[in-house]
Design a protein around this nucleic acid. Structure first.
Lengths: 240, 240
DNA sequence: ATTTCCACTTGACCTAGATCAAAGGAGCCG
DNA sequence: CGGCTCCTTTGATCTAGGTCAAGTGGAAAT
Protein backbone atom coordinates (compact mmCIF):
# COMPACT_ATOMS: atom_id res chain seq x y z
CA UNK A 1 0.00 0.00 0.00
CA UNK A 2 1.49 3.28 -1.10
CA UNK A 3 1.96 6.25 1.15
CA UNK A 4 -0.52 9.01 0.39
CA UNK A 5 -0.50 12.52 1.54
CA UNK A 6 -3.95 13.88 2.08
CA UNK A 7 -3.81 16.38 -0.71
CA UNK A 8 -7.29 17.69 -0.21
CA UNK A 9 -9.29 18.32 2.86
CA UNK A 10 -12.26 19.05 0.65
CA UNK A 11 -12.97 15.41 -0.27
CA UNK A 12 -10.18 13.25 1.17
CA UNK A 13 -10.70 10.69 -1.53
CA UNK A 14 -6.96 10.24 -1.94
CA UNK A 15 -6.97 8.49 1.37
CA UNK A 16 -9.51 5.88 0.40
CA UNK A 17 -8.82 2.34 -0.75
CA UNK A 18 -10.57 3.14 -4.01
CA UNK A 19 -7.93 5.69 -4.76
CA UNK A 20 -4.85 4.12 -3.26
CA UNK A 21 -4.83 1.37 -5.90
CA UNK A 22 -4.77 3.89 -8.72
CA UNK A 23 -1.92 5.45 -10.64
CA UNK A 24 -1.54 9.15 -10.04
CA UNK A 25 -3.30 10.34 -13.19
CA UNK A 26 -6.48 8.38 -12.59
CA UNK A 27 -6.52 9.32 -8.95
CA UNK A 28 -6.66 12.90 -10.12
CA UNK A 29 -9.74 12.26 -12.22
CA UNK A 30 -11.46 10.61 -9.30
CA UNK A 31 -10.53 13.59 -7.20
CA UNK A 32 -12.17 15.97 -9.67
CA UNK A 33 -15.62 14.41 -9.27
CA UNK A 34 -15.45 13.92 -5.53
CA UNK A 35 -16.97 16.18 -2.94
CA UNK A 36 -17.39 16.00 0.75
CA UNK A 37 -20.65 16.09 2.54
CA UNK A 38 -21.77 16.15 6.13
CA UNK A 39 -24.93 14.63 7.57
CA UNK A 40 -26.17 14.97 11.15
CA UNK A 41 -27.08 11.95 13.23
CA UNK A 42 -30.41 10.45 12.25
CA UNK A 43 -30.51 12.01 8.79
CA UNK A 44 -31.89 9.66 6.14
CA UNK A 45 -29.48 9.68 3.23
CA UNK A 46 -31.49 7.42 0.97
CA UNK A 47 -34.87 5.86 1.55
CA UNK A 48 -35.43 3.35 -1.21
CA UNK A 49 -37.53 5.53 -3.44
CA UNK A 50 -35.58 7.04 -6.28
CA UNK A 51 -32.04 6.12 -7.30
CA UNK A 52 -29.45 7.79 -5.08
CA UNK A 53 -27.57 10.36 -7.09
CA UNK A 54 -24.21 9.29 -5.82
CA UNK A 55 -21.89 6.66 -4.54
CA UNK A 56 -20.04 7.41 -1.31
CA UNK A 57 -17.18 6.44 0.93
CA UNK A 58 -17.52 6.97 4.66
CA UNK A 59 -14.84 9.35 5.96
CA UNK A 60 -15.97 9.49 9.57
CA UNK A 61 -18.92 8.35 11.62
CA UNK A 62 -21.13 5.32 11.09
CA UNK A 63 -23.81 4.71 8.46
CA UNK A 64 -26.54 2.14 9.00
CA UNK A 65 -28.24 0.11 6.29
CA UNK A 66 -31.80 -0.76 7.24
CA UNK A 67 -34.32 -3.12 5.76
CA UNK A 68 -37.89 -2.37 6.78
CA UNK A 69 -41.08 -4.40 6.49
CA UNK A 70 -44.44 -2.67 6.05
CA UNK A 71 -45.45 -3.71 9.59
CA UNK A 72 -42.68 -1.55 11.02
CA UNK A 73 -40.29 -4.24 12.11
CA UNK A 74 -36.83 -3.45 10.88
CA UNK A 75 -33.50 -5.13 10.69
CA UNK A 76 -30.22 -3.28 10.44
CA UNK A 77 -28.41 -5.29 7.80
CA UNK A 78 -25.13 -3.47 7.89
CA UNK A 79 -23.02 -0.82 9.56
CA UNK A 80 -20.59 1.07 7.37
CA UNK A 81 -17.63 2.49 9.21
CA UNK A 82 -14.86 4.82 8.18
CA UNK A 83 -13.45 3.72 4.76
CA UNK A 84 -16.46 1.52 3.87
CA UNK A 85 -18.51 2.41 0.83
CA UNK A 86 -22.23 3.00 0.39
CA UNK A 87 -24.13 2.65 -2.85
CA UNK A 88 -24.29 0.62 -6.01
CA UNK A 89 -23.04 1.89 -9.35
CA UNK A 90 -25.07 0.81 -12.41
CA UNK A 91 -28.00 -0.21 -10.26
CA UNK A 92 -30.12 0.67 -7.31
CA UNK A 93 -30.03 -0.21 -3.64
CA UNK A 94 -33.29 -2.11 -3.69
CA UNK A 95 -35.43 -1.67 -0.61
CA UNK A 96 -32.52 -0.58 1.53
CA UNK A 97 -32.75 2.54 3.66
CA UNK A 98 -29.49 4.36 4.40
CA UNK A 99 -29.25 6.52 7.49
CA UNK A 100 -26.59 8.36 9.46
CA UNK A 101 -26.20 6.45 12.74
CA UNK A 102 -23.90 9.17 14.05
CA UNK A 103 -22.82 12.49 12.61
CA UNK A 104 -20.99 11.53 9.46
CA UNK A 105 -18.71 12.81 6.74
CA UNK A 106 -19.06 11.23 3.34
CA UNK A 107 -16.83 11.47 0.34
CA UNK A 108 -19.39 11.48 -2.46
CA UNK A 109 -18.91 10.63 -6.11
CA UNK A 110 -21.61 11.89 -8.43
CA UNK A 111 -23.23 8.93 -10.04
CA UNK A 112 -22.84 9.46 -13.77
CA UNK A 113 -19.24 10.71 -13.79
CA UNK A 114 -18.29 7.93 -11.41
CA UNK A 115 -19.87 5.31 -13.65
CA UNK A 116 -18.02 6.78 -16.61
CA UNK A 117 -14.75 6.62 -14.74
CA UNK A 118 -15.43 3.01 -13.80
CA UNK A 119 -16.01 2.19 -17.44
CA UNK A 120 -12.84 3.91 -18.55
CA UNK A 121 -10.61 2.52 -15.84
CA UNK A 122 -11.00 -1.20 -15.27
CA UNK A 123 -8.60 -1.08 -12.36
CA UNK A 124 -11.13 1.03 -10.50
CA UNK A 125 -13.81 -1.50 -11.18
CA UNK A 126 -11.52 -4.25 -10.00
CA UNK A 127 -11.04 -2.50 -6.67
CA UNK A 128 -14.77 -2.03 -6.31
CA UNK A 129 -15.39 -5.69 -7.13
CA UNK A 130 -12.98 -6.75 -4.42
CA UNK A 131 -14.59 -4.48 -1.88
CA UNK A 132 -18.01 -5.82 -2.80
CA UNK A 133 -16.79 -9.36 -2.22
CA UNK A 134 -15.44 -8.22 1.13
CA UNK A 135 -18.86 -6.81 2.00
CA UNK A 136 -20.41 -10.11 1.03
CA UNK A 137 -18.00 -11.96 3.31
CA UNK A 138 -18.84 -9.62 6.14
CA UNK A 139 -22.57 -10.05 5.59
CA UNK A 140 -22.18 -13.83 5.72
CA UNK A 141 -20.07 -13.54 8.84
CA UNK A 142 -22.89 -11.62 10.41
CA UNK A 143 -25.40 -14.25 9.36
CA UNK A 144 -23.53 -16.63 11.61
CA UNK A 145 -23.86 -14.20 14.49
CA UNK A 146 -27.59 -13.80 13.93
CA UNK A 147 -28.34 -17.45 13.41
CA UNK A 148 -26.15 -19.26 15.86
CA UNK A 149 -25.14 -17.11 18.81
CA UNK A 150 -26.76 -16.52 22.19
CA UNK A 151 -27.90 -13.05 23.22
CA UNK A 152 -24.76 -12.55 25.26
CA UNK A 153 -22.48 -13.67 22.45
CA UNK A 154 -24.32 -11.38 20.04
CA UNK A 155 -23.80 -8.37 22.29
CA UNK A 156 -20.15 -9.24 22.85
CA UNK A 157 -19.63 -9.71 19.08
CA UNK A 158 -21.22 -6.36 18.45
CA UNK A 159 -19.02 -4.54 20.95
CA UNK A 160 -15.93 -6.28 19.63
CA UNK A 161 -16.83 -5.31 16.09
CA UNK A 162 -17.44 -1.69 17.02
CA UNK A 163 -14.17 -1.44 18.91
CA UNK A 164 -12.19 -2.89 16.04
CA UNK A 165 -13.80 -0.79 13.37
CA UNK A 166 -13.89 2.45 15.34
CA UNK A 167 -10.15 2.62 15.70
CA UNK A 168 -9.57 2.30 11.98
CA UNK A 169 -9.46 5.56 10.12
CA UNK A 170 -9.58 6.47 6.42
CA UNK A 171 -6.09 6.75 5.04
CA UNK A 172 -4.44 5.30 8.12
CA UNK A 173 -3.34 1.72 8.51
CA UNK A 174 -5.48 -0.20 11.00
CA UNK A 175 -4.67 0.94 14.50
CA UNK A 176 -4.02 -1.81 16.98
CA UNK A 177 -6.82 -1.83 19.48
CA UNK A 178 -5.59 -0.25 22.63
CA UNK A 179 -7.31 -1.78 25.63
CA UNK A 180 -8.84 0.61 28.11
CA UNK A 181 -9.37 3.00 25.23
CA UNK A 182 -12.75 4.61 25.24
CA UNK A 183 -14.98 4.31 22.19
CA UNK A 184 -18.35 5.57 21.06
CA UNK A 185 -21.36 3.33 20.57
CA UNK A 186 -22.81 4.27 17.19
CA UNK A 187 -26.24 2.86 18.00
CA UNK A 188 -28.92 3.43 20.60
CA UNK A 189 -30.23 0.42 22.51
CA UNK A 190 -33.21 0.17 20.19
CA UNK A 191 -30.98 0.23 17.13
CA UNK A 192 -28.64 -2.32 18.65
CA UNK A 193 -31.66 -4.55 19.13
CA UNK A 194 -32.56 -4.13 15.47
CA UNK A 195 -29.02 -5.00 14.51
CA UNK A 196 -28.74 -8.11 16.68
CA UNK A 197 -32.32 -9.36 16.46
CA UNK A 198 -32.87 -8.90 20.20
CA UNK A 199 -35.28 -6.97 22.43
CA UNK A 200 -33.87 -3.79 23.90
CA UNK A 201 -34.34 -5.09 27.43
CA UNK A 202 -32.12 -8.02 26.56
CA UNK A 203 -29.39 -5.71 25.27
CA UNK A 204 -29.60 -3.71 28.45
CA UNK A 205 -29.35 -6.79 30.67
CA UNK A 206 -26.42 -8.25 28.76
CA UNK A 207 -24.51 -4.98 28.98
CA UNK A 208 -25.27 -4.80 32.70
CA UNK A 209 -23.96 -8.34 33.08
CA UNK A 210 -20.74 -7.59 31.21
CA UNK A 211 -20.30 -4.61 33.48
CA UNK A 212 -20.74 -6.51 36.75
CA UNK A 213 -18.23 -9.07 35.50
CA UNK A 214 -15.71 -6.29 35.01
CA UNK A 215 -15.33 -6.90 31.29
CA UNK A 216 -16.50 -3.46 30.24
CA UNK A 217 -17.12 -0.08 31.79
CA UNK A 218 -19.68 2.39 30.52
CA UNK A 219 -19.06 6.09 30.06
CA UNK A 220 -22.48 7.65 29.85
CA UNK A 221 -24.91 5.96 27.52
CA UNK A 222 -23.14 6.30 24.23
CA UNK A 223 -19.58 5.38 25.12
CA UNK A 224 -17.67 2.64 26.93
CA UNK A 225 -14.27 1.17 27.68
CA UNK A 226 -13.25 -2.46 27.36
CA UNK A 227 -11.36 -3.58 30.48
CA UNK A 228 -10.81 -7.22 29.55
CA UNK A 229 -10.65 -7.70 25.81
CA UNK A 230 -9.74 -11.42 25.85
CA UNK A 231 -12.74 -12.19 28.00
CA UNK A 232 -14.99 -10.13 25.74
CA UNK A 233 -13.71 -12.16 22.81
CA UNK A 234 -14.36 -15.39 24.67
CA UNK A 235 -17.96 -14.32 25.20
CA UNK A 236 -18.30 -13.44 21.57
CA UNK A 237 -17.53 -17.07 20.82
CA UNK A 238 -20.14 -18.33 23.24
CA UNK A 239 -17.63 -19.65 25.73
CA UNK A 240 -17.99 -18.30 29.18
CA UNK B 1 -32.04 -10.43 -22.72
CA UNK B 2 -30.90 -11.98 -25.97
CA UNK B 3 -31.96 -15.39 -27.20
CA UNK B 4 -29.23 -17.94 -26.93
CA UNK B 5 -29.05 -21.35 -28.42
CA UNK B 6 -27.23 -23.78 -26.25
CA UNK B 7 -24.36 -24.36 -28.59
CA UNK B 8 -22.48 -26.73 -26.36
CA UNK B 9 -23.64 -29.44 -24.06
CA UNK B 10 -20.09 -29.76 -22.83
CA UNK B 11 -20.10 -26.62 -20.70
CA UNK B 12 -23.38 -24.78 -21.28
CA UNK B 13 -21.75 -21.49 -20.45
CA UNK B 14 -23.53 -19.79 -23.32
CA UNK B 15 -26.68 -20.07 -21.31
CA UNK B 16 -25.37 -18.25 -18.28
CA UNK B 17 -25.91 -14.62 -17.40
CA UNK B 18 -22.17 -14.12 -17.50
CA UNK B 19 -22.21 -14.97 -21.15
CA UNK B 20 -25.51 -13.54 -22.27
CA UNK B 21 -24.30 -9.98 -21.77
CA UNK B 22 -21.32 -10.52 -24.03
CA UNK B 23 -20.86 -9.92 -27.74
CA UNK B 24 -20.39 -13.10 -29.73
CA UNK B 25 -16.62 -12.94 -30.01
CA UNK B 26 -15.98 -12.65 -26.31
CA UNK B 27 -18.55 -15.28 -25.53
CA UNK B 28 -16.45 -17.61 -27.65
CA UNK B 29 -13.37 -16.94 -25.59
CA UNK B 30 -15.25 -17.67 -22.43
CA UNK B 31 -16.48 -20.86 -23.97
CA UNK B 32 -12.95 -22.00 -24.73
CA UNK B 33 -11.88 -22.01 -21.09
CA UNK B 34 -15.08 -23.49 -19.71
CA UNK B 35 -15.63 -27.10 -18.78
CA UNK B 36 -18.40 -28.96 -17.13
CA UNK B 37 -18.07 -30.93 -13.99
CA UNK B 38 -20.29 -33.18 -11.94
CA UNK B 39 -20.20 -33.65 -8.17
CA UNK B 40 -22.27 -36.14 -6.17
CA UNK B 41 -24.38 -35.05 -3.22
CA UNK B 42 -22.31 -34.35 -0.12
CA UNK B 43 -19.03 -33.85 -2.00
CA UNK B 44 -16.93 -31.03 -0.58
CA UNK B 45 -15.90 -28.81 -3.48
CA UNK B 46 -13.75 -26.45 -1.49
CA UNK B 47 -12.90 -26.52 2.19
CA UNK B 48 -11.16 -23.26 2.96
CA UNK B 49 -7.64 -24.55 2.80
CA UNK B 50 -5.95 -23.69 -0.48
CA UNK B 51 -7.30 -21.37 -3.16
CA UNK B 52 -9.90 -23.03 -5.34
CA UNK B 53 -8.52 -23.54 -8.82
CA UNK B 54 -11.64 -22.27 -10.50
CA UNK B 55 -14.68 -20.12 -10.56
CA UNK B 56 -17.98 -21.82 -11.34
CA UNK B 57 -21.57 -21.32 -12.36
CA UNK B 58 -24.18 -23.77 -11.13
CA UNK B 59 -25.89 -25.55 -14.03
CA UNK B 60 -28.11 -27.85 -12.00
CA UNK B 61 -28.52 -28.88 -8.39
CA UNK B 62 -27.85 -26.82 -5.28
CA UNK B 63 -24.54 -25.80 -3.70
CA UNK B 64 -24.33 -24.83 -0.06
CA UNK B 65 -21.91 -22.31 1.44
CA UNK B 66 -21.05 -23.18 5.01
CA UNK B 67 -19.27 -21.28 7.71
CA UNK B 68 -17.98 -23.49 10.49
CA UNK B 69 -16.70 -22.67 13.97
CA UNK B 70 -14.05 -24.83 15.62
CA UNK B 71 -16.62 -26.15 18.11
CA UNK B 72 -18.53 -27.78 15.28
CA UNK B 73 -21.51 -25.47 15.13
CA UNK B 74 -22.10 -24.43 11.57
CA UNK B 75 -24.22 -21.97 9.72
CA UNK B 76 -25.19 -22.33 6.10
CA UNK B 77 -24.68 -18.79 4.83
CA UNK B 78 -25.90 -19.32 1.33
CA UNK B 79 -27.52 -21.67 -1.14
CA UNK B 80 -26.49 -21.34 -4.78
CA UNK B 81 -29.08 -22.54 -7.25
CA UNK B 82 -29.02 -23.03 -10.97
CA UNK B 83 -27.40 -19.98 -12.66
CA UNK B 84 -25.78 -18.66 -9.46
CA UNK B 85 -22.02 -18.43 -9.28
CA UNK B 86 -19.52 -19.80 -6.78
CA UNK B 87 -16.06 -18.43 -6.17
CA UNK B 88 -14.11 -15.23 -6.03
CA UNK B 89 -11.73 -14.17 -8.77
CA UNK B 90 -8.55 -12.35 -7.66
CA UNK B 91 -9.05 -13.51 -4.09
CA UNK B 92 -9.98 -16.39 -1.87
CA UNK B 93 -13.19 -17.51 -0.27
CA UNK B 94 -12.00 -16.96 3.26
CA UNK B 95 -13.17 -19.52 5.75
CA UNK B 96 -16.08 -20.62 3.61
CA UNK B 97 -16.71 -24.30 2.90
CA UNK B 98 -18.45 -25.14 -0.37
CA UNK B 99 -20.35 -28.39 -0.64
CA UNK B 100 -22.77 -30.09 -3.03
CA UNK B 101 -26.13 -30.11 -1.28
CA UNK B 102 -27.55 -32.29 -4.05
CA UNK B 103 -25.95 -33.91 -7.08
CA UNK B 104 -24.72 -30.96 -9.10
CA UNK B 105 -23.39 -29.90 -12.47
CA UNK B 106 -21.00 -26.99 -12.50
CA UNK B 107 -19.74 -24.97 -15.39
CA UNK B 108 -16.17 -24.31 -14.28
CA UNK B 109 -13.79 -21.61 -15.45
CA UNK B 110 -10.15 -22.24 -14.71
CA UNK B 111 -8.90 -19.52 -12.46
CA UNK B 112 -6.02 -17.91 -14.29
CA UNK B 113 -7.51 -17.83 -17.80
CA UNK B 114 -10.76 -16.52 -16.34
CA UNK B 115 -8.95 -13.76 -14.49
CA UNK B 116 -7.14 -12.86 -17.69
CA UNK B 117 -10.40 -12.69 -19.57
CA UNK B 118 -11.88 -10.49 -16.87
CA UNK B 119 -8.93 -8.15 -17.20
CA UNK B 120 -9.20 -8.00 -20.97
CA UNK B 121 -12.96 -7.59 -21.13
CA UNK B 122 -14.30 -5.02 -18.71
CA UNK B 123 -17.88 -5.86 -19.70
CA UNK B 124 -17.38 -9.28 -18.17
CA UNK B 125 -16.18 -7.71 -14.98
CA UNK B 126 -19.18 -5.42 -14.98
CA UNK B 127 -21.54 -8.38 -15.15
CA UNK B 128 -19.70 -10.08 -12.33
CA UNK B 129 -19.84 -6.91 -10.24
CA UNK B 130 -23.59 -6.70 -10.70
CA UNK B 131 -24.06 -10.33 -9.75
CA UNK B 132 -21.93 -9.81 -6.66
CA UNK B 133 -24.10 -6.88 -5.63
CA UNK B 134 -27.13 -9.10 -6.16
CA UNK B 135 -25.59 -11.72 -3.89
CA UNK B 136 -24.99 -9.05 -1.29
CA UNK B 137 -28.64 -7.98 -1.49
CA UNK B 138 -29.74 -11.58 -1.09
CA UNK B 139 -27.46 -12.07 1.89
CA UNK B 140 -28.93 -9.00 3.56
CA UNK B 141 -32.42 -10.18 2.77
CA UNK B 142 -31.59 -13.40 4.55
CA UNK B 143 -30.24 -11.49 7.55
CA UNK B 144 -33.74 -10.16 8.03
CA UNK B 145 -35.11 -13.69 8.01
CA UNK B 146 -32.55 -14.87 10.55
CA UNK B 147 -32.86 -11.90 12.85
CA UNK B 148 -36.50 -11.03 12.85
CA UNK B 149 -38.74 -13.98 11.92
CA UNK B 150 -40.40 -16.68 14.02
CA UNK B 151 -39.56 -20.34 13.48
CA UNK B 152 -42.67 -20.82 11.39
CA UNK B 153 -41.99 -17.78 9.23
CA UNK B 154 -38.41 -18.94 8.73
CA UNK B 155 -39.52 -22.36 7.52
CA UNK B 156 -42.16 -20.84 5.24
CA UNK B 157 -39.58 -18.38 3.84
CA UNK B 158 -37.22 -21.23 3.19
CA UNK B 159 -39.79 -23.30 1.33
CA UNK B 160 -40.90 -20.29 -0.66
CA UNK B 161 -37.33 -19.52 -1.60
CA UNK B 162 -36.63 -23.09 -2.67
CA UNK B 163 -39.78 -23.27 -4.79
CA UNK B 164 -39.00 -20.02 -6.56
CA UNK B 165 -35.39 -20.85 -7.24
CA UNK B 166 -35.92 -24.49 -8.16
CA UNK B 167 -38.14 -23.67 -11.09
CA UNK B 168 -35.60 -21.34 -12.61
CA UNK B 169 -33.17 -22.99 -14.98
CA UNK B 170 -29.91 -21.88 -16.58
CA UNK B 171 -30.60 -20.33 -19.94
CA UNK B 172 -34.36 -20.17 -19.48
CA UNK B 173 -36.27 -17.14 -18.34
CA UNK B 174 -37.70 -17.54 -14.85
CA UNK B 175 -40.57 -19.99 -14.92
CA UNK B 176 -43.75 -18.85 -13.21
CA UNK B 177 -44.25 -20.98 -10.16
CA UNK B 178 -46.92 -23.50 -10.92
CA UNK B 179 -48.87 -24.38 -7.81
CA UNK B 180 -49.28 -28.04 -7.03
CA UNK B 181 -45.97 -28.61 -8.76
CA UNK B 182 -43.69 -30.95 -6.92
CA UNK B 183 -40.19 -29.82 -6.00
CA UNK B 184 -37.13 -31.28 -4.33
CA UNK B 185 -35.85 -30.16 -0.95
CA UNK B 186 -32.12 -29.62 -1.39
CA UNK B 187 -31.39 -29.92 2.32
CA UNK B 188 -31.86 -32.52 5.04
CA UNK B 189 -33.61 -31.46 8.22
CA UNK B 190 -30.28 -30.98 9.96
CA UNK B 191 -29.00 -28.79 7.14
CA UNK B 192 -32.23 -26.82 7.09
CA UNK B 193 -31.70 -26.19 10.78
CA UNK B 194 -28.20 -24.94 10.07
CA UNK B 195 -29.59 -22.66 7.39
CA UNK B 196 -32.40 -21.19 9.49
CA UNK B 197 -30.72 -21.16 12.86
CA UNK B 198 -33.24 -23.61 14.33
CA UNK B 199 -33.16 -27.03 15.98
CA UNK B 200 -34.09 -29.90 13.71
CA UNK B 201 -37.05 -30.83 15.89
CA UNK B 202 -38.43 -27.36 15.35
CA UNK B 203 -38.12 -27.73 11.58
CA UNK B 204 -39.92 -31.03 11.75
CA UNK B 205 -42.76 -29.64 13.87
CA UNK B 206 -43.25 -26.59 11.66
CA UNK B 207 -43.43 -28.74 8.54
CA UNK B 208 -45.91 -31.02 10.27
CA UNK B 209 -48.00 -27.99 11.18
CA UNK B 210 -47.97 -26.65 7.62
CA UNK B 211 -49.11 -30.09 6.49
CA UNK B 212 -52.04 -30.36 8.87
CA UNK B 213 -53.14 -26.90 7.79
CA UNK B 214 -53.23 -28.09 4.23
CA UNK B 215 -50.66 -25.59 3.00
CA UNK B 216 -48.16 -28.17 1.83
CA UNK B 217 -48.03 -31.89 1.12
CA UNK B 218 -44.91 -33.99 1.48
CA UNK B 219 -43.73 -36.53 -1.05
CA UNK B 220 -41.29 -38.71 0.81
CA UNK B 221 -38.66 -36.90 2.83
CA UNK B 222 -36.89 -34.95 0.16
CA UNK B 223 -39.76 -33.57 -1.91
CA UNK B 224 -43.04 -31.73 -1.45
CA UNK B 225 -45.86 -29.88 -3.16
CA UNK B 226 -47.28 -26.49 -2.22
CA UNK B 227 -51.08 -26.62 -2.11
CA UNK B 228 -51.75 -23.07 -0.99
CA UNK B 229 -49.03 -20.70 -2.09
CA UNK B 230 -50.68 -17.47 -0.90
CA UNK B 231 -51.05 -18.85 2.58
CA UNK B 232 -47.43 -20.04 2.58
CA UNK B 233 -46.42 -16.52 1.62
CA UNK B 234 -48.55 -15.09 4.40
CA UNK B 235 -46.76 -17.31 6.88
CA UNK B 236 -43.41 -16.25 5.52
CA UNK B 237 -44.35 -12.72 6.52
CA UNK B 238 -45.28 -13.75 10.03
CA UNK B 239 -48.96 -13.20 9.52
CA UNK B 240 -51.16 -16.12 10.13
C1' DA C 1 -33.77 24.75 40.61
C1' DT C 2 -37.66 22.06 39.06
C1' DT C 3 -40.34 20.00 35.76
C1' DT C 4 -40.82 17.23 31.75
C1' DC C 5 -39.51 13.99 28.61
C1' DC C 6 -37.40 10.18 26.78
C1' DA C 7 -34.23 6.70 26.65
C1' DC C 8 -32.59 3.30 29.47
C1' DT C 9 -32.79 -0.03 33.33
C1' DT C 10 -34.76 -3.39 36.35
C1' DG C 11 -38.16 -6.61 37.83
C1' DA C 12 -41.82 -10.18 37.24
C1' DC C 13 -43.75 -12.93 34.41
C1' DC C 14 -44.64 -16.02 30.12
C1' DT C 15 -44.14 -18.17 25.73
C1' DA C 16 -41.36 -19.92 21.67
C1' DG C 17 -38.24 -22.81 20.80
C1' DA C 18 -34.24 -25.72 22.69
C1' DT C 19 -33.16 -29.88 24.78
C1' DC C 20 -33.77 -34.53 26.19
C1' DA C 21 -35.84 -38.88 25.36
C1' DA C 22 -38.44 -42.21 23.09
C1' DA C 23 -40.62 -43.94 19.17
C1' DG C 24 -41.47 -44.49 14.03
C1' DG C 25 -39.85 -45.23 8.93
C1' DA C 26 -36.88 -45.73 5.14
C1' DG C 27 -32.91 -47.58 2.95
C1' DC C 28 -29.31 -51.23 3.15
C1' DC C 29 -27.25 -55.54 3.96
C1' DG C 30 -27.12 -60.28 4.80
C1' DC D 1 -37.64 -61.44 4.59
C1' DG D 2 -35.80 -59.74 9.03
C1' DG D 3 -32.45 -56.97 11.34
C1' DC D 4 -29.52 -52.86 11.43
C1' DT D 5 -28.64 -48.06 11.05
C1' DC D 6 -29.66 -43.52 10.27
C1' DC D 7 -32.77 -39.93 9.86
C1' DT D 8 -37.08 -38.05 11.16
C1' DT D 9 -41.10 -37.47 13.96
C1' DT D 10 -43.48 -36.91 18.25
C1' DG D 11 -43.79 -36.14 23.16
C1' DA D 12 -42.38 -34.02 27.65
C1' DT D 13 -39.82 -30.80 29.89
C1' DC D 14 -36.80 -26.60 30.52
C1' DT D 15 -34.98 -22.15 29.67
C1' DA D 16 -33.35 -18.11 27.15
C1' DG D 17 -35.16 -14.38 25.88
C1' DG D 18 -39.54 -11.82 24.84
C1' DT D 19 -43.18 -9.03 26.84
C1' DC D 20 -45.33 -6.07 30.03
C1' DA D 21 -44.98 -2.86 33.62
C1' DA D 22 -42.82 -0.02 36.87
C1' DG D 23 -38.91 2.66 38.07
C1' DT D 24 -34.44 5.81 37.18
C1' DG D 25 -31.58 9.19 35.49
C1' DG D 26 -29.82 12.64 32.42
C1' DA D 27 -30.67 16.49 29.27
C1' DA D 28 -33.46 20.09 27.69
C1' DA D 29 -37.12 23.32 28.74
C1' DT D 30 -39.37 26.39 32.04
Amino acid sequence: MGVHINACNKCEIRDTALCSALPEVEADRLHKIAYRRHYPQGKVIFDGGEEPESFAIVISGVVKLVRTKRDGRQQIVGLQFSSDFVGRPFGDLGSLMVEAATDIELCCLTRKPFENLLQQHPILERVLLQRTFDELDAARQWMFVLGRLSARAKVASFLQHVVERSHRVVGKDPVTVCPQQQFELPLSRTETGDYLGLAIETISRQIAQLKTEGIIETVGLRAMRVLDFPRLQAWAENEG
